[in-house]
Amino acid sequence: MTSVEKVQNEIVEELSLFSDWMEKYEYLIELGKDEINFDKKFMKDEFLINGCQSKVWLYAKENNSKISFHAYSDAIMTKGIIALLIKVFSNQSPDDIINAKLDFIDKIGLKNHLSATRANGLMSMIKQIKIYAIGFKEKNG
């Protein structure tokens, strides 16, 4: 099991503790309220992800061949979902990120609870994360 898969399984397990969606949302809201490591100088249009109903800024840094992701949103629940994504993808190698299959999104039922436009937003975020990973991989040759 790759570490990306491991983190995903942990998330699925954690969320399965909640019986209804209101509780899951509460969990996402709490995650969204947490302080995050995001440098506000990246709050610029060039770091904005297209296709989200709320604004999402994302940037990435590389440290010892692992990538860390930093993101911010003006909507709390979106911020909570981002926190989950960052948990999964941060401190992973570019290859692991590029090859990651994201079954946790289906498993926790998140997709069914997002409207089509919102699900598209989530997909845009993942796409952007993978684009960063590809970029770092190419840079390192």
Binding site: Y25, Q53, S54, A75, I76, M77, T78
Partner: peptide, 10 residues
């Protein structure tokens, strides 16, 4: 101080 999107989802 609350985002309209968050309200809409809830």
């Amino acid at each position: 101080k609350v985002h309209h999107y968050d309200i809409g989802v809830l």
